[in-house]
């Protein structure tokens, strides 16, 4: 398994809203049931169709720089959420959560980015799922409460 001084954990905790259902095509590339995170410095963000690439320099525990590629949703989905190619400073330290490569490559499917100031950037599909779930839960809880009152 990987050995990084910066934290890279193949943590099998689940985000409340997995995107596994949204990317069946890539189920053979990324483990959509697992969530890992990696921390590194931004090299470049390229917003592309069909998928975006975020290049990151990660220092492993031997002190060597390793290149990582975080693949994410396409330019249209991200632009709609305000993403731009210059939204990160070159060399900016970020932490990225996502689905790890099934082959242990330095690749990940991007779910969310956490910047140094604590602000989060979320995969639009994850954000949509959160909105759907919040609306549904609120509606069902209301119905449940009404049923109990009757």
């Amino acid at each position: 398994m990987n050995r990084y001084s910066v934290v890279l954990l193949a943590v099998f905790f689940c985000f409340p809203f997995s995107t596994s259902q949204a990317h069946h095509s890539y189920a053979g590339v990324y483990d959509m049931e697992a969530v890992s995170h990696v921390q590194g410095r931004v090299v470049e963000l390229r917003l592309l169709n069909p998928h975006t690439s975020l290049y990151l320099d990660v220092i492993n525990e031997d002190g060597e720089v390793e290149e990582w590629v975080l693949e994410g949703p396409g330019i249209l989905s991200l632009q709609r959420r305000g993403w731009t190619e210059d939204m990160f400073e070159e060399g900016e330290l970020i932490k990225v959560y996502g689905n790890p490569s099934v082959r242990g490559k330095n690749m990940m499917w991007l779910d969310r980015v956490i910047k140094e100031d604590g602000s989060e950037l979320v995969d639009p599909i994850v954000a949509d799922n959160e909105a759907i779930e919040a609306e549904r839960r609120e509606r069902l809880l209301r119905i449940q409460q009404q049923n109990q009152e009757q």
Binding site: V29, R46, L48, N49
Partner: peptide, 15 residues
């Protein structure tokens, strides 16, 4: 407001 971009980044993932 959306435009359709070229499909320019099909990369065969390393398997």
């Amino acid at each position: 407001g959306e435009k359709i971009y070229p499909y320019d980044s099909c990369v065969i993932p390393e398997l």
